[in-house]
Computed example of a mutant assay.
Amino acid sequence: MAGFRDAFPFGHERSAMSDSALVVGGTRFVGRHTVEELLDHDYHVTIFNRGNHDNPFADRENVDHVEGDRRDETDLKAAKLSVEPDIVIDCVAYYPADVAIATDVFADVDGYVYISSGDAYGVEEIPKREDETPMRPCTEEQAVDESGETYGNRKAEGDRKVVEAAENGVNAMSVRPCIVYGPYDYTERMDYWLDRVDSYDRVVVPGDGQNVWHRAYVEDVASALRVVAEEGEPGEFYNVGDRTAVTLDEMLELMADAMDTEIEVVHAGKRELAAAGLDPESFILYRDYPHLLDTDKLAALGWSSTPLEEAMARTVEEHRESDRDGSEYDPGRENEETVLSVLDTV
């Protein structure tokens, strides 16, 4: 999509000086950190959502709240008229129609940024690059499906809607995170491993511990959204992830260091896991084939990621203050003890 910046010189000039941002979502995880990022860069922020979750910014200066349903075009138009935002960060567009409607409603903003996903890529290759790796297809049925199986398809089709909007003169862009972690992560995927490292001396890890599922620290995702809104090219996609990807073993080492503790990582193969009725996929954040995103395109805009030690230290601090333990993903400590017993007799 080269040349779009030249086509919209005034819009992108203004975006660098914008002081009004609308965040669709904005109270839970990525959205919450995005609001903080925008406030730190002198934006006046308005959160647009249905008000179903506690608003951590209820008493903060320079943060307003407009209640409405993002899937209701009338509500979106009302938010646009009341806020007149310079940039829009769309954290909760889960269907292609959401993106199509939003890019129409916010067609004249300086920057509309859609949060897509690394799952939008349809080919397994290392690394996945925005301008080279094909996207997933999306049928009409998948575009409206609510199941997790079509999540990547729907996100990919949302990216295509961004391209269509840009071709029609809208300053629309997309950011593709990999697995996001950090404070206030309600998915609790990382919390499972944090709880294991904090609670036990021996931690069972499937395989050899060298699998790579690229992760992105949430504050870096938030900064990527702002940077792309200000500096990105309409119609373009930008991967975001830690600039240094780590293996599962290395992730646990980072956790242990941040917790000032020591653990023994015990690797278990399929045979040992099967003794307890488990397999490698029983453990969250395990992925057999590496998932790695190239982040050079985003870095070229001036973005950088937080040092891993700092990111993990902040993640650990908030985890310990929370009541999250990732129990939804727990394969059962008694099952792990069975696996450990098998390994100890080998």
Score class of each variant (00 low, 15 high):
24 V>S: 08
30 V>Y: 08
31 G>R: 04
32 R>G: 02
33 H>L: 05
36 E>F: 02
37 E>W: 01
37 E>T: 05
38 L>G: 12
39 L>F: 06
39 L>N: 12
40 D>H: 13
40 D>P: 09
41 H>S: 13
45 V>T: 09
49 N>V: 01
51 G>F: 07
52 N>T: 12
53 H>I: 01
54 D>N: 11
55 N>E: 04
60 R>M: 05
61 E>I: 00
62 N>Y: 05
63 V>A: 06
64 D>K: 10
69 D>K: 12
70 R>T: 03
70 R>N: 09
72 D>W: 03
74 T>Y: 07
75 D>A: 15
81 L>S: 15
83 V>C: 15
84 E>I: 07
85 P>H: 08
86 D>K: 07
87 I>A: 11
87 I>D: 13
89 I>R: 09
89 I>V: 11
90 D>M: 04
93 A>S: 15
93 A>G: 11
96 P>T: 05
99 V>D: 09
100 A>W: 03
104 D>L: 02
105 V>I: 09
107 A>V: 00
111 G>Q: 08
111 G>N: 04
112 Y>L: 05
115 I>K: 11
116 S>F: 02
117 S>A: 11
118 G>L: 01
120 A>V: 05
120 A>T: 10
121 Y>K: 03
127 P>T: 01
128 K>M: 02
128 K>E: 00
131 D>K: 03
132 E>S: 06
132 E>Y: 01
133 T>C: 01
135 M>N: 10
140 E>F: 02
140 E>D: 13
141 E>K: 04
142 Q>R: 09
145 D>S: 11
150 T>V: 06
152 G>F: 02
152 G>H: 10
